[in-house]
Design a protein around this nucleic acid. Structure first.
Lengths: 199, 199, 199, 199
DNA sequence: TATGAATGAGAATTCATTCAT
DNA sequence: CATGAATGAATTCTCATTCAT
């Protein structure tokens, strides 16, 4: 059971680290900060992680894996909209459940090193791909106009969801009723709104 | 002429600093990094800026001021859609013109200290307010449904524009033809798309 | 025991710092200088003191407190001369025991900043006050002429004692027999000597 | 006449430098400080002095030379007390006239380098020698008791004069009437005062 | 002569990481 | 396992000095 104990200790430290990283950012967070919050000595942390970077990596990997396992690839042989609906909900749920990490992923995607950058770029590309794939299917079935740039729309959707989820989470804390949020998003007649003069 | 020379030097250093900050983030960027890129000695930087923080602040202030002077408040006694159109264009233009800074503003928004946070929070609130105000007017004139949460829609629009502009800029460099981008955005029948099964 | 160990380490560092400061002065002493003498790494010093200034302050406070607790206020209801005798001895003892610090107090009294200046100025004023008070009592009992400027005489005595003690300590090291020194001082028929021609 | 102009410029810069050095100390005084006070560019200073140290050296040499030319060696074939009287007055006059430099000489006698230290030590030794010499003559002529330690008494006198002059100058500024000061000093019946209990 | 922009050595301080206890 | 003292590389910032104009 030693392993279990060790494992749960690690989990606890990850939790604390995530909070501190989210609050102060990667660089401004010192090992001491984490240890103080976790009530352990500085040396102890190194029994559970190789180094500062290792903690951060573990957190990010966890987040990416959470997200990727929450959303599911679109299947062309099933109705698309329910799939899309489900994925949006899953996406937002992960964002909100991991508010701290979302902050980090969104803001510290930079400057650590290329290996880390690549992880996030790859993650982002995967997300975009999922959505783009769905949009292409919709184009094929003529549910959306052929003239639309699927990739750009994919970015739009991600940007929209990211911002809204993030702001919603900021305002409402963790106890969010997802449904009103989703209903509101669905109501946005953005295109209509943006069909400006002369169109 | 002296002032001009000094000023242009400062501009050059800001340009370089912006690039480096954008690439590596505030904390991971060392003064040496900037100086190397700018081909100057470390001491020279301090002839033009008080300290590292001062460089960053100047950049952010510049960006915020650029943005705020680019967009204009909505006037209820004039047709809203052209105004909105114009602002979206301006917003995107600034984002694309200042790709580097956008990265910074988007990612280092928090965690330096409260004085700095406040600047960005205030900036963001101003943006949201502009859009929200316009949306409320649209609600009143029943151009959009009353059930919509104007603030949330404002966030959506900003999130969408931010992400799309940023990604577009990444792919297409600085020389962006805005019109195809705008046309694409306008075409997004997001609401239709998101009126999922059963609705 | 932990506290004791930490404390004794601090004491050791103060001792070394005092010597180095005394030899080179505050500004010319670098943290590296102190660490080299103390055989520790530069970082280690910061485990015991906040910064260079903190080390210096601690030294000065120690010195002032040593001195102030060594000398005692004059009581008018007791014979003055033994009191004076005792205080002179105590004063000289502290000077000689803290030769290094005396150097610092004497030479870096001014110019660090006002907070620091104030400490020393206040200390000095206290010393002068003690002596001046005693002299005023002596005036009242007509043991010294009424025409004497008590403050100036106080300065004289302090200057004399300071210089003599300091030089004596320089020549004789720490192991000083105070009595011959005091006897010598007492013999100085300064006034007689200085009652120049014509008086 | 070029030389004259150059020379007077140097003089002016020395004056300014002396003030600044005296106020802030050698190390805390920056070349910029001096230049600002002198209303010249930083580069200009180096037309008149080799470096910062050179300015300081020049000042100290000036002071020492002033002092040494003010006081005169004692001559055994003339009455000693008038000579002593004259020298004390000269000594105090120089101290008061060069209050700024006195501060420096008294407090920055340290840490620059051994060459500088040696200068001051030699100067001090010279002073002590003068006085000691006079005292030895007085001993021989039995004007002071043979048991007195002439060197120690010399230190006493210097310490006393230094302190009193310095304090007096601090309180009264430059416009000092020397005579009341001297009268007071002469009145000090220090020895009588210090003939403690039992003597 | 005079200027002041540029330099770069050097100083203080921080902090991730190690290791003896 | 846990501790926390010690380390020293790296970072920011200062300032005497140089040199092209």
């Amino acid at each position: 059971m030693r392993t279990t104990k060790r494992h749960s200790r690690q989990e606890q430290l990850l939790l604390v680290s995530g909070k501190v990283f989210a609050k102060k950012g990667y660089h401004a967070t010192s090992i001491s900060d984490i240890c103080k919050k976790a009530n352990i000595a500085r040396g102890t942390l190194y029994l559970y992680f190789d180094n500062k970077r290792d903690i951060f990596d573990t957190l990010i990997k966890q987040y990416i894996s959470d997200m990727l396992s929450a959303i599911t690839k679109f299947h062309s042989d099933q109705p698309l909209k329910p799939q899309f609906n489900k994925n949006v909900r899953a996406f937002i749920e992960v964002i909100i459940k991991n508010k701290d990490l979302t902050r980090i992923v969104a803001s510290e995607a930079v400057g650590l090193d290329s290996e880390f950058d690549n992880q996030l770029i790859h993650f982002y590309a995967t997300l975009v791909n999922y959505i783009e794939g769905a949009l292409l299917l919709l184009k094929k079935s003529e549910e959306i106009p052929k003239t639309i740039n699927a990739q750009l729309l994919a970015y739009s959707i991600i940007g929209l969801l990211k911002e809204v989820s993030y702001q919603w989470a900021l305002d409402h804390g963790n106890l969010v009723e997802l449904d009103p949020l989703l209903q509101n998003i669905r109501q946005f007649k953005l295109d209509g709104f943006m069909q400006f003069s002369g169109e």
